[in-house]
Nucleic acid binder design. Structure first.
Lengths: 224, 224
DNA sequence: CCAAAAAGAGCGAACGTTCACTCTCGAATT
DNA sequence: AATTCGAGAGTGAACGTTCGCTCTTTTTGG
């Protein structure tokens, strides 16, 4: 009733016209509602610490209703860490089309750090990482999305390497691994929330990138 | 009886001489036994996921016995994360007496990474960080030990700064924060377990340190 | 020096609570 | 009329913790 009133595109609330769509639409809404509530609860209490009752309360829904959308607590955890990682991976890969290797890398990293800070998802990120240590499904998803980011970065760096734009001291695989570890440390610590301004983070991020990638002509301009 | 035989310094097993010591000694042993068992369980199942029964089984002890040593599960969690952080902090501070800033920093970091890898405590480290997001006692302990490391590092860098050995691009506070974030990222990822050899980690660690600290005379020798 | 009393350590069943999850049944939707 | 949805009481299992008890070690009083 209330739902029908809110979003009936043609205004024919009483007549059962839209047929296929309406139920599916509602399902999507409710699913999203549960995921939103669960995300809040998991940030607040952790994956293991949050109870289904807590999630139900947050979603304004009974357990019976909730279990129509997710078969288990674990399936919610999986859905959330999946979405979280997927979203991050996509965003990061999308940003790496800057022709300047240093700028592209630094900007992508900064955008990610900014987003995590703004959405307050640093806690969720940590939680996902901790859960990945023991839950195989979560770990698999985690690894998949990290590979996605890694491949995008590798492709990006490889092209710069072919152009002769960068001269890293180590092989590409090692370079990628350490660069990503660095990024994770920065995200985990959520530096902006500790009062470190973004410009300062960017400065050091850039200097670390320059040191590791050694792009043409940066030695004199930046370090000298 | 068996305990008396094992560690009676004067060999007067039957006479109740050592008086004060014996009980206290036993207490320490048992406490350590519980903490060891708990650590294993927490690595395996997480702080919230591990049950008291699981810890009791691992320690070869009944719940009743265990509760004579710790008043609650939370007190065990606190004791463990306390010890963990304390231990790391002490080790790291102790290593920073190398007169070469770069060598000292890199060696301290590498020693830490190596130790975490060998003891398989990367999972525990992640768990502590996740728990710190919601458990105030754990967070406080976490912050305290990080401040300890931070202060040791600050002192170390400040002295080098006074000598004119390094010329960082940013202020000391920011430098410290980002350096520590980098270190945490490396620990969290437990690179050695992913097949990255220590020498390679060291190479990139060193180049990042050089870039951020900019020690005298390194530009030509290492980068040129 | 030794019996008697007190204190401590350990066990494991049992406590009340909370957990993830299911069932039933009426209301709403198609 | 048929199907889906949702509420909420209810399920057994598992949780952290406690209790009553036995056995051992230490302290005490004569």
């Amino acid at each position: 009733m209330s739902v029908a009133e809110l979003d009936d595109p043609a205004g024919e609330s009483t007549t059962p016209r839209p047929a296929v769509t309406r139920r599916a639409q509602r399902r999507e809404q409710q699913t999203a509602r549960i995921l939103d509530a669960a995300k809040k609860c998991f940030v607040r209490s952790g994956f293991q610490g949050a109870s289904m009752q807590e999630i139900c309360n947050e979603a304004g829904m009974s357990p019976g209703a909730l279990y129509r959308y997710f078969p288990s607590k674990e399936s919610i955890i999986e859905a959330i860490s999946e979405a979280q990682q997927q979203q991050d991976a996509e965003m990061l890969s999308a940003m790496l089309d800057n022709p300047s290797v240093i700028d592209g890398f630094v900007e992508a990293s900064m955008a990610h750090i900014r987003k995590v800070h703004e959405h307050g998802t640093a806690a969720l990120f940590t939680e996902v990482r901790a859960e990945a240590m023991r839950n195989e499904m979560v770990r698999t998803g985690c690894e998949r999305s990290m590979h996605q980011v890694r491949d995008a970065l590798r492709n990006y760096f490889q092209k710069a390497l072919d152009r002769g734009d960068i001269r890293p001291r180590v092989d590409l695989d090692t370079l990628l691994t350490v660069m990503m570890a660095l990024g994770e440390g920065l995200i985990l610590n959520d530096l902006p929330s500790q009062g470190v301004p973004m410009e300062k983070i960017e400065t050091l991020m850039r200097s670390a990138a320059i040191s590791n990638l050694r792009p043409r002509g940066y030695e004199e301009q930046k370090i000298g």
